[in-house]
């Protein structure tokens, strides 16, 4: 494992910890999109089916379990916790799942490395992850008062993918058989989606102002 990959994984982990702490400490999930969290749950379930079939490393297994458990915890809080669920921006979080899920499913059926259930679901999770942040970005745009932790959460999540691109470049140069075009293209699309957010995040940070996205 190279340094970019490890930094990417740690950034991803940190983003989830920030989100868990924010919701738990403030007893509020204001500004957080349940749709994005549920799409991530689908992504992790489809991608990590190999937990049952293929052991890669202890690190790999532990990280997968952490991502699954933390995402389902957040969803549980937002849907059922008696204090937290009241703070969910239900009326603002209106992005339709099917606009993202259906095209990704069709694409995964058409474009994959191998036409087997496991492989198609894995590919589907790669495509879906690339766009799963969209409901969250739309919600942020509609929220007038973005709190720091929510901004940091999205920033960390975007940074994770940017670091993975560096990891792929590194692996491409150092590993003979490392060719993953579907993953690379999806990862680049995913990172591009964040560029606008990054711009306003860094601008607000440099000017010491509160983050807000233009509608």
């Amino acid at each position: 494992m190279n340094v970019f990959r490890l930094a990417g994984d740690m950034t991803h982990l940190l983003s989830i910890i920030v989100l868990l702490l924010k919701i738990n400490a403030t007893r509020s999930c204001r500004g957080i999109s349940l749709k994005t969290q549920e799409l991530y749950a689908v992504v992790f379930v489809c991608r990590y089916l190999d937990l049952f079939t293929n052991f890669i490393s202890l690190y790999n297994t532990v990280m997968k379990i952490i991502f699954l458990v933390s995402t389902f915890t957040i969803i549980y809080w937002m849907r059922f916790h008696k204090v937290i669920r009241v703070t969910y921006d239900r009326e603002q979080d209106t992005f339709r799942y099917q606009f993202l899920v259906l095209p990704c499913l069709v694409l995964a059926l058409l474009l994959n490395n191998e036409f087997t259930a496991m492989e198609v679901l894995w590919t589907f999770s790669i495509y879906l992850e690339a766009v799963a942040i969209l409901p969250q970005l739309v919600l942020l745009q509609r929220t007038n008062n973005i709190d720091n932790l929510t901004g940091n959460y999205v920033f960390l999540l975007g940074s994770y993918r940017a670091l993975y691109i560096l990891n792929w470049v590194y692996r491409f140069m150092t590993e003979k058989h490392y060719r993953q075009y579907l993953v690379w293209i999806s990862g680049i699309v995913q990172t591009i989606i964040y560029i606008d957010f990054f711009y306003y995040y860094i601008k607000s940070w440099r000017n010491n102002e509160k983050l807000s996205l233009p509608a």
Partner: peptide, 10 residues
């Protein structure tokens, strides 16, 4: 076999 390689990523 190439597609197996990146399955070690998260």
């Amino acid at each position: 076999d190439d597609d197996r390689v990146s399955k070690d990523e998260l």
